[in-house]
Design a protein around this nucleic acid. Structure first.
Length: 202
DNA sequence: GGTAAGATCCGCT
DNA sequence: GCGGATCTTACCT
């Protein structure tokens, strides 16, 4: 990896509404340096959650021990456990009171692919290694221990280098797996990308 | 102290 | 398309 890709996005990038940050994350490299070396993937699918004014957000009913990271400084990682089995990764955005965040739903694996494959139980297809939010956390080897981590300092960060989207368009659709605010089309993805999970809006 | 639902995934039908 | 796995969280009494 070239030197400029090592640099993390600055906090100012995150200090805006999640709805503005979300599409700009597409095509950027999410990197983790861990015990099994460096792994990284291009972000190809995200969802915006607009905090206390968004009924689908964990922050909707105010601060709790679980969601307190969302009410903190932007540019931190919010990791939560769900369905008794899975972890999901979010990037905290906007000013602290707003408690908004972007859920990372899918990556196109780029570095450390064999490490991701091991963590994912040996799945052959690379495009399935980090397809879906639970799979993203598993492929990167992240869990509750990484909750609250500062993305401007590492060992997990998003590279500052310009997004690479392979000429694919950004499209949007309704968020997945929620039962309220389904009319808000706050899911963003790279059109036709094989690593995108769920339904594929055009 | 009890309970219901959950920003999911995978395998089976 | 459906259901099981598995357990935390939040909200209720």
């Amino acid at each position: 990896m070239r030197q400029r890709e090592h640099r993390a996005l600055p906090r100012s990038f995150y200090a805006r509404p999640a709805l503005a940050v979300a599409p700009e994350l597409l095509g950027r490299l999410l990197v983790r340096d861990g015990p099994r070396g460096r792994v990284a993937g291009r972000i190809v699918e995200v969802e915006a959650y607009e905090g206390e004014r968004d009924p689908a957000s964990h922050a909707y009913r105010g601060p709790t021990p679980r969601n307190e990271v969302m009410f903190g400084e932007p540019g931190h990682l919010y990791v939560y456990f769900t369905y008794g089995m899975h972890y999901c990764l979010n990037v905290v955005c906007d000013v602290a009171e707003r408690a908004s965040a972007v859920l990372v739903r899918a990556l196109d694996p780029e570095l450390g692919i064999e490490t991701m494959r091991r963590r994912r139980g040996g799945i052959a297809e690379t495009s399935r290694l980090a397809r879906g939010p639970g799979c993203v956390a598993q492929a990167l080897g992240l869990d509750r221990r990484h909750n609250g981590l500062d993305l401007t300092k590492g060992p997990v960060w998003i590279a500052r280098a310009a997004p690479e989207r392979g000429g694919r368009r950004i499209v949007r659709g309704p968020r997945i797996g929620i039962r309220v605010a389904v009319d808000r089309r706050w899911r963003f993805l790279l059109a036709g990308h094989p690593a995108v999970s769920g339904p594929k809006p055009r």
